[in-house]
């Protein structure tokens, strides 16, 4: 593996997403929907993993960031009058996604500030409250449709956009945590006092984690809004946040490949269980209980990771 291997992987992933999207109409719409949801959940879970898993700041507000991104994106694309299939969509959707991400990142900055003083359960409750505030505020804003929801969002999201963003998210977050700079997040999580004594500005790292995580959650919200074309505040309640937290915990806190797999599995599982109708959620919940009893560190823990595998390969190719 050369030094630019991750960039090659990123470009390849985006190219593959593009090629697959050409055949999108051939895919059964029901399966396509699940695949899109898997992608969106991977973005949400890997970005939350930066905050919860790597930086160790237990956040329950991810749905709030997602809502901000979703609504901002919806406002942008409806104002600019994008139409599905139109050539303007190629510019308008990325613009809507990025602006949604920025608004969410600003909110991440806001919620990052209390995180400087709080930790553990207290932080979890504060972020949960923050997410709910966002939802309730949106519910009372008439120009966003209030509780009725926001309708008529152009359906611009397709396989290409979702999986390009998935690739970018994974690329950015893996590069970040694998870099020397990113070791600061792990130090903050492991021992704040020791981290400070080694010259780590723990405050800055926590805020960077929140802002970066929130940005990608906002982008995921934008993708979601432009896929379902109708959003309402109830879709972004704290239940949604908890679903994302569950993906992170099941995958293994601070294990990006594990979290990606868990996000996919936990998106598929409720759908796969549809044939058993009313027992569906019982089985779903039960499997979570069993996973947590048998694998409290998550399905993949912190050890079994692509990172150590890649690290080994890299060392063989590049002796010190």
């Amino acid at each position: 593996m050369g030094v630019h291997a991750t960039k090659v992987v990123l470009l390849a992933a985006i190219a593959i997403s593009f090629i697959v999207s050409l055949f999108q109409s051939q895919i059964n719409p029901y399966f396509l929907q699940i695949i899109i949801y898997i992608g969106i959940n991977i973005i949400l879970a890997t970005s939350l993993n930066l905050i919860n898993g790597y930086a160790g700041q237990f956040s329950l507000g991810h749905a709030g960031f997602m809502a901000l991104g979703g609504y901002t994106g919806a406002v942008v694309s409806t104002t600019l009058g994008a139409t599905p299939g139109g050539s303007s969509a190629v510019i308008i959707l990325p613009l809507a996604l990025v602006l949604g991400g920025i608004v969410a990142a600003l909110a991440g900055l806001l919620v990052g500030i209390p995180s400087l003083r709080l930790r553990g359960d207290y932080l979890a409750i504060t972020t949960l409250g923050f997410g709910e505030i966002i939802r309730v505020v949106i519910q009372n804003l008439d120009f966003l449709g209030g509780a009725r929801g926001f309708t008529g969002i152009p359906k611009l999201t397709n396989f290409f956009w979702v999986f390009s963003v998935v690739s970018i998210t994974v690329f950015v977050i893996s590069n970040l945590v694998n870099s020397s700079y990113g070791k600061g997040f792990l130090a903050v999580r492991d021992d704040e006092i020791a981290a400070q004594a080694m010259g780590i500005n723990t405050t800055k790292y926590k805020v960077v984690a929140f802002v970066t995580g929130a940005f990608f959650a906002g982008v995921a919200g934008g993708l979601y809004a432009h896929f379902v074309s109708y959003i309402n505040p109830q879709q972004f309640s704290f239940i949604r946040s908890i679903e994302i937290v569950v993906m992170v915990i099941v995958g293994g806190m601070g294990n990006t490949p594990g979290v990606i797999i868990a996000a996919a599995l936990l998106t598929i599982l409720p759908e796969a269980l549809r044939p058993i109708a009313e027992y569906r959620m019982v089985i779903y919940s039960l499997s979570l209980v069993i996973i947590m009893i048998t694998r409290p560190q998550g399905l993949f823990g912190r050890e079994l990771s692509l990172r150590s595998l890649l690290g080994r390969l890299r060392k063989q190719a590049m002796p010190v």
């Binding site: 070791k183 792990l186 130090a187 492991d190 006092i193 981290a195 780590i200």
Partner: peptide
């Protein structure tokens, strides 16, 4: 001793070089 428990020896020292 307050080494970072989830990090390797190498990574523990890497943290000091962040600054």
């Amino acid at each position: 001793i307050r080494l970072f428990p989830s990090l390797t020896v190498y990574e523990n020292i890497q943290v000091s070089l962040v600054k």
